[in-house]
């Protein structure tokens, strides 16, 4: 029913579409796109396509926000040039001792094609964010409109529980602001001023970081998440936070 409700809000894609029931059925399949754990075996380094639909834990169940900001990473394109990191630091005034986004490296000796891959990470703007749950003063909170995990630095007491609650190491204490700092999908610096994408996404020369609206069927992120031919996963799905940053290859 939740999906059906969502459908009602969607714009009509055309009269030649299939029936609502069929669309709903398809959507449900898409919605249960599952999180194969991005890591571990050599198999998943070489190819994790064809082994993804084992789990039924749908991490996308509903879209409580409009727009529901999200990002999908095409990690096979990532070359760790770190232009995203520089752009992020420049756009958001991130000091050299901290970062809002980072690139991880995974080396797989013995893989036949290439022996390394890079994994960009940033705040996953989780639907069940633990950082906002543990914050004693609501200094960090989910924006009720777009789901971005925001900081109200005036309220931050610096207990750093949010840093421990975050399964993605997305937070750090900013000594200049006297508050925890984190990725806000460039809300203050860009989105709120009318920009359509984040600084990191714009700076990426390889098209790794695709930013968009997960609740908009005509959006690229929506299309890439709601399909079954290509593997889509999230990092650390067992942490149970229902993240909004997705990963794919190809």
């Amino acid at each position: 029913m939740k999906n059906l409700k969502n459908l009602d809000k969607m714009t009509n894609e055309g009269v030649d579409n299939c029936s609502v029931e069929e669309r709903r059925h398809f959507l449900k399949m898409g919605l249960t796109v599952t999180g194969v754990f991005a890591g571990g075996t050599i198999l998943s380094a070489v190819s994790s396509v064809n082994k993804v639909y084992a789990s039924t834990s749908g991490f996308v169940e509903k879209y409580p926000y409009k727009p529901h900001y999200s990002m999908i990473m095409h990690i096979e394109n990532c070359i760790d040039c770190e232009k995203c990191k520089s752009a992020c630091a420049e756009t958001n005034g991130v000091p050299s001792y901290g970062f809002r986004t980072n690139i991880l490296e995974r080396q797989v000796a013995g893989a036949l094609d290439q022996q390394r891959e890079f994994i960009p990470v940033l705040c996953n703007h989780c639907n069940l964010a633990q950082c906002t749950r543990v914050c004693p003063t609501k200094a960090t909170y989910k924006d009720p409109n777009n789901g971005i995990v925001m900081m109200n630095i005036e309220k931050c007491i610096g207990c750093l529980s949010c840093q421990l609650g975050c399964p993605y190491n997305a937070r750090y204490f900013n000594e200049e602001k006297w508050a925890v700092d984190k990725c806000t999908f460039c809300w203050e610096s860009r989105l709120s001023k009318g920009a359509k994408t984040t600084g990191c996404s714009e700076a990426c020369p390889a098209g790794v970081r695709i930013f968009g609206d997960l609740s908009n069927p005509s959006d690229r992120v929506y299309k890439e998440v709601h399909q079954m031919t290509k593997t889509v996963w999230v990092l650390r799905p067992q942490a149970g936070t229902k993240p909004n940053v997705f990963y794919t290859r190809g």
Binding site: E82, E105, D113, Q114, R116
Partner: peptide
Amino acid sequence: NTRCTTCHVGVIG
């Protein structure tokens, strides 16, 4: 155009 990270070892490399 293939095997990007064979040559692109990045800032980390």
